[in-house]
Design a protein around this nucleic acid. Structure first.
Lengths: 221, 221
DNA sequence: GTCTATAATTAGATAGAC
DNA sequence: GTCTATCTAATTATAGAC
């Protein structure tokens, strides 16, 4: 039985999950060094020593939180078994299918960045220096995603669908453009007076990014 | 007389500048809370109490460092008095001039992001929560630049030069795409095995971004 | 202006009662 | 599993000799 009601004892798994979710927010906002275990515990309605009971160390908590976040990302990027149905499927060329699959992946990534700004916040915090934590995260989680994107981009360029941009540049343009309005959401609210996490804004941002990345795409609505 | 030779007394201005430069690096890598005044002082070959001698507080040092960084940015974005010379100038339509001026601004911004990754690192660190420091930085430094970009983008859209993307989206796509490879340079080196700050890579990244943002542009080389 | 010494606070981690 | 109390180390800032 899972619950977070006051007075009701939380199970081991509940407590671990609450601490991980709290850790993602604190690590995302303040970075590893800036986040304090006391603040993480407080956010999960727990006491600071419970972190060292449920995890070996602050670093072990960080690893568990990052693992969980990339699990969520990978689940969110998984495409449905079949994207095209009926007549559209018959009319679609293999190139179009490739383009639509990439567009769908961008759309899913933008939505995830809006729902989980901690992902790109944590990456930016860690990627400013070549540390053990960065190497761990890159080898374990980022590299497989990076290589998938690189391969898809190279194929899309041969079809003329993708913009004429080096694959290494394109990956960072895609990730940076997709995520910054959500990473910097409090700045967006102050600067532009809009709410970037509104679903209409998220979808419009995604379609704009797709249009920029894939100028040779045939619209598929 | 300015010097950083050992044994030679540094002037007040020298010491302030050295502390500001050290602060930019530390604040950029670790964020305000994660950066320690001891580490900043050590990086400037100074002792920790010198920070409180030359600045009122850690926060005052942060403000001085951010002021200095945006001064550098604004200087780097200033276009030359005349961009076009000779026959090209006569042949250019007003729309083309507008497009080339924007392209030049993007190029300068990409170069600055490569030379000063601290700028976008500090913004990302501060923009994750609506704090007094964020409000101060947005009102004092970011808003004027944002409004300039918004205005230029809107005009470029009426000419058909700019991609069909909302101005608020476009600003964050531009900044995010331009800066992420430099903000995350250590990740780029691990992932792609390239050096993003090499000037050839910087220029190629800039031209790729300009091509994406301004698909209706007439090349001017 | 710079340095040593230190005050006051907060950090991550541990011990032991319950 | 959770809580209080506490240890050691690191934090920002200040005092005062030089």
């Amino acid at each position: 039985m899972s619950t977070t009601d006051p007075g009701v004892r939380r199970t081991r798994t509940d407590m671990r999950n609450l601490l991980i979710e709290a850790a993602l927010i604190e690590f995302g906002c303040k970075g590893f060094d800036g986040a304090s275990t006391r603040a993480i515990a407080r956010r999960a309605d727990a006491h600071q020593p419970q972190i060292n009971y449920h995890f070996d160390s602050k670093e072990a908590l960080w690893e568990a939180a990052v693992d969980h976040l990339f699990d969520l990302l990978n689940a969110a990027l998984l495409p449905p078994a079949l994207e095209l149905h009926g007549p559209e499927r018959l009319a679609a060329s293999p190139d179009d299918v490739l383009g639509e699959r990439f567009a769908d992946r961008v759309r899913r990534f933008v939505r995830f960045a809006a729902d989980h700004p901690e992902l790109n916040r944590i990456i930016v915090h860690e990627a400013t220096a070549e540390t053990d934590r960065l190497r761990w995260m890159v080898d374990r989680h980022v590299r497989p995603l990076f290589e998938e994107t690189q391969e898809a981009w190279t194929r899309l360029q041969t079809t003329g669908i993708a913009a004429p941009i080096d694959a290494s540049s394109a990956h960072y343009m895609m990730v940076g453009a997709a995520s910054l309005p959500f990473v910097n959401a409090p700045e967006v609210r102050l600067l532009a007076g809009i709410e970037p996490t509104d679903s209409a804004w998220v979808e419009s941002h995604a379609e704009g990014l797709i249009a920029m990345l894939l100028p040779g795409r045939r619209s598929s609505s």
